[in-house]
Design a protein around this nucleic acid. Structure first.
Length: 269
DNA sequence: TTCCAGGCGTATC
DNA sequence: GATACGCATGGA
């Protein structure tokens, strides 16, 4: 990875990165494809327009500056992690080798913990376009992604404008537990995986899968392994006896390659 | 019309 | 602990 400043843009060179595979793969819900090679979205409430450059592995971050890049996007895009090395390790496994080859530009975004937790509460028993719709109505209503504190006045009834169905009461419970201090996401981020998962699961509507997504995408616990309907299929098909040794410590990262592969790439044999 | 979606709470055994 | 079922909403 390296970067250069070009006027009001940052030019990023990162071969293990693809905009579609990272920004539109079901881990974050606030990125919009605004042109064939361009996405617009946010980390917290910092806006970015990013496009793929003329040559592979080169990207342009528009209208930003070096400080914002180093303070926000370097971390958000997980640029300190060597995905080439991870893919080499994963590729000891035959299926993961195919998954990494199929979508080698996947990265695990380092999202805000509250945004990830609340987004994945909304995600349950739901589909990605509708999840984006609900989160779009939430951010439009609040003029940005609302923190838990901002949501204190909301009730299940007042959140009806989201059209999030039975999930509204789960959001209300998450807001209550976090803003009361009963749960502290920064503290949870420092706990061992099992304890962190158990703490999150005290929230109504947070089960094993939502907890793991919050830990993986919102607290960058790369050993968190969310199992949804797609991963159930992947495990039954490829790993009936468990995950291979080569993913240890990075189960969540491997999960993202497998998730994308079984949803989009792997054809039934 | 019916089925399904990055699941979970509840009841029941 | 496992299994069955309902759940809001909307796209396919």
């Amino acid at each position: 990875m390296d970067y250069t400043v070009s006027g009001t843009d940052i030019i990023l060179r990162q071969p293990d990165f693809d905009l579609d595979e990272t920004l539109d793969c079901g881990q974050a819900f606030r990125w919009t494809k605004t042109a064939g090679d361009t996405y617009e979205g946010y980390y917290l409430n910092t806006y970015l327009r990013i496009s793929a450059g003329d040559e592979p592995g080169v990207f342009r971050l528009h209208d930003t500056d070096e400080q914002t890049f180093l303070n926000s996007w370097y971390s958000y895009l997980d640029l300190s992690t060597d995905y080439g090395e991870l893919k080499r390790r994963f590729s000891e496994d035959e299926t993961l080798a195919k998954a990494c080859a199929y979508a080698g530009g996947i990265r695990i975004l380092r999202q805000d913990s509250w945004e990830a937790l609340s987004s994945f509460i909304i995600s349950q028993n739901n589909n990605i376009p509708r999840i984006k719709g609900i989160i779009g109505r939430l951010t439009e209503h609040y003029g940005g992604y609302p923190g838990a504190e901002q949501l204190i006045p909301e009730t299940e009834e007042s959140l009806a404008f989201l059209r999030s169905g039975f999930r509204a009461k789960y959001l209300v419970d998450a807001v209550a537990k976090i803003t009361s201090g009963e749960l502290d996401l920064d503290r949870i981020a420092g706990l061992p995986l099992d304890e962190a998962k158990a703490a999150l699961m005290t929230i109504k509507g947070v089960g094993p899968k939502v907890a793991m997504c919050a830990l993986l995408f919102g607290m960058h616990k790369t050993d968190a392994f969310p199992v949804d309907v797609w991963m159930k299929r992947a495990l039954e098909r490829w790993y009936p006896n468990g995950l291979p040794e080569c993913v240890r410590g990075h189960e969540g990262t491997a999960q993202q390659y497998l998730f994308h592969y079984i949803r989009n790439g792997a054809r039934a044999q």
